[in-house]
Write a protein that binds this DNA or RNA. Structure first.
Lengths: 204, 204
DNA sequence: TTGACATTCATACGTTCGTATGATTCCATA
DNA sequence: TATGGAATCATACGAACGTATGAATGTCAA
């Protein structure tokens, strides 16, 4: 039973890494089982199919993020602080789980519907943000306007940095893996988010 | 010669559509030639390989955008106006060429280096933006700070909308293909960009 | 009209793919 | 120790893949 569960989780880890790195089509069952030190039939045995393993990988990555974002938001009273906390939590999470943005990205690019676990996670995270925005609009601390559009503008900041910084910063001679660089980026994003949503952002 | 060129451009068009829709790996040479009403060997004959066709597709999409952005920026004198013009030009272009963000996205998700034509295009577009930002910082109309980070925050807005709006707005019951919706989105993005960069954005 | 070159075509080769199958090994429980 | 089910294994199948090859066809100058 122990080794059995191990092979399963090893496959999950291999899937996380490889699907993020090479995509679903770019990853073969043979790649997965080789990296997981499991037999070729192990994917079928434990998950039923390659696609089912893929969905399991996404669920395992997305669910903890949803939990953390929900609890980060409810820990603060001021709407703008809640919004910033959501963004910071997101950034912190993808700092330790860089596979998540890569996986989300591939799904968005595909034009297909998101896999069910991803859709559910996105819906819930976005709900937290929209709630904070409408609350801030009620007390005047957040700019008026469509809360959905504002939420998109907010998430654009951390998301785009997660996605594009690698390419852009590398071209600019900056190393996004450096901790100091990363810290500066996080502070910049937090400021930019306040500029986007707050009616009175402190202008530095 | 005429029919020959036709087969080549038909392949280019088929590649644009299919690579954006299904990705490089998800598109077979047989798919491409079937859609282009060309023979299976046509890709090899005209482009040498499937990968070379892919690069040709990206170059054909990216080059006109670079030109338009460069000329849109130099048509205005105020730095913040130039920045907004870059964003609007980008949005307008991807409105008529929705394949471009999908292709860029897949490349970003891949973790690989961008294909040479894409890297060159990105570098030049980003340069236009950074120039406008530093000019604005000199005359005080743009917030101080690292121009590269600011440029990333600017591009995050149109880019994220191009990417995520389909999923998010669909979940919110909004149809992003609707022209009126799209116009509202463009105005929102233009405002958000000013909030991000301008020292004195008109707060609506 | 002929010849030469560009283009289009049918087809075959060798790989790799996802999955299915049945044998084998492992191990907790009786 | 015996046994039954879980887990792991080697292997095979048919399909789809990218590419190479040579024949067939089209096109235009000489």
């Amino acid at each position: 039973m122990k080794t059995a569960k191990d092979a399963r989780t090893r496959l999950l880890e291999a899937g996380t890494r490889l699907f993020a790195q090479r995509g679903f089509d770019g990853t073969s069952v043979r790649d997965l089982t080789r990296r997981a030190r499991a037999n070729l039939g192990a994917v079928t045995y434990y998950f039923g199919s390659k696609a089912a393993l893929y969905h399991a990988v996404i669920a395992a990555l997305a669910e903890p993020l949803v939990d953390r974002i929900a609890q980060a938001a409810q820990a603060l009273s001021q709407p703008v602080d809640r919004i910033e906390a959501v963004v910071r939590t997101f950034l912190e999470y993808i700092g330790t789980h860089p596979e998540l943005p890569a996986l989300i990205l591939r799904e968005l690019a595909s034009g297909r519907r998101l896999p069910p676990p991803a859709e559910e996670a996105m819906r819930r995270n976005f709900g937290v943000l929209v709630d904070a925005i409408t609350a801030g609009q009620r007390d005047g601390t957040v700019r008026p306007g469509d809360p959905v559009l504002l939420a998109l503008s907010v998430m654009a900041q951390p998301f785009h940095f997660a996605i594009a910084s690698r390419v852009v910063l590398a071209a600019a001679g900056i190393n996004p893996a450096d901790a100091a660089v990363r810290a500066r980026m996080v502070e910049h994003i937090a400021r930019a988010v306040r500029w986007v949503v707050a009616t009175n952002p402190k202008t530095p």
